[in-house]
Amino acid sequence: MQINKTKFTLVIMGPPYGSQSASSAFQFCKEAVENGHHIVGVFFYQHGVLNGNQLVSPTTDETNLPQHWAALAHKYKFPLEVCISAALRRGVVDQSEAQQLALTQFNLTTPFVLSGLGQLAELSAQCDRLVTF
């Protein structure tokens, strides 16, 4: 059976732990790509930027959402865009920002990338449906 493919943009505003937002988003995203839909991109804003923090370390019998996002994005080749202004305020930093800000650490690794809110406009324009979590 032919399915109608939809181009989705997901906007995640919730943290990887503490609210259901990002977990629901991940499950939605996984089902969508596994059923042949296209993810234009996932934009992490507000507390959602914490999903890009690779230092998140839940116990082994719990879900490590940052790792799950990274694996899914790697497998299906869609971008994970993290809002830079929201990220820096919350201590989520990539290597080049860490150097610029003279920080001794960074915690954002590929395939997450820091990008601006302009990218949200771009993702909004490119998709058939924008879903916020």
Binding site: Y45, Q46, G116, L117, G118, A121, E122, S124, A125
Partner: peptide
């Protein structure tokens, strides 16, 4: 909460494109 402020930031950013 920072919702109001971050909403306004997003609004201005989107306004330059839409």
């Amino acid at each position: 909460s920072t919702d109001g402020r971050e909403s306004l930031d997003a609004l201005l950013a989107l306004a330059t494109f839409n």
